[in-house]
Amino acid sequence: MTKARIDARFNALKAEGRAAFVTYVMAGDPDYATALEILQGLPAAGADVIEVGFPFSDPMAEGPPIQRAAQRALSKGMTLNRTLELIADFRKTDQDTPVILMGYANPLVTPGYVAFARDAAQAGVDGLIVVDIPPEEADPLADALDAEGLSLIRLATPTTDDARLSIVIQRTSGFVYYVSVAGVTGVKEADADLVAPHVRRVRAASGLPVAVGFGIKTPERAAAIARVADGVVVGSALVDEVAAALAVNESVTARVLSKVESLAHAVRTARTSEPEARTLHGNG
């Protein structure tokens, strides 16, 4: 049933003629209560799809912002089980926004894929991205997710050629996540002109919506990507707001949601506004 929530959201946005704004936040960052408050505020602030990171001690594909977010969450005792509790709490007030968990394999190995998939579906999770489980290693996980109706969302990257792409999109559903740059999260900047042909290629091969992430920090860049992709993912820029708010003792929730609003506005209006006109606003 939960794959349906992702499909429904992307279909509705397609009908509206705009890209989805996908926000990434780290579960338990900076603490459980604040993370829940942020999650509850995200849909109203403009998030169409929510990715929730479950923290891991050794996140090999993350740049410094998300590494630090994971450390903050772990230092407050965040775990995979608590992440599922957080999603269940969020679902008490929101039944429509798709929630995708994103993280690394090892925390899933401990409960086992079957038990994890069952608990995740019960908590109201819709899909899963596991950074270090490529298609070659994914069958046991995909079987467990299929049994619960959860989507396994795959990453395609600048190193994915056509031959590889046919492997990458096997057993994927919901959407495909296109990693816009070769690198870790939150360091290099995505270039919409370079990304566009890849989005078309992945969309044609998979028949699924394509969301683009890694290296999108500003409203200008989010708008540029929103013109060429079906979804725009922002993560590092949001968790950086958590760090910045903590540093100056501001309200974390207000600061993160304010950033979400400015990015969401850019994504929602991207296809009806002129790119030239937008650049006049400078780096928001």
Binding site: M60, A61, A105, D132, P134, T157, T159, R164, V179
Partner: peptide, 18 residues
């Protein structure tokens, strides 16, 4: 596929798989 029984394998991000 790089397996010693259940161990080994290739658990890396997609960017590195090629």
């Amino acid at each position: 596929s790089g397996r010693f029984g259940d161990y080994g394998g290739r658990y890396v991000p997609e960017t590195l798989m090629p």
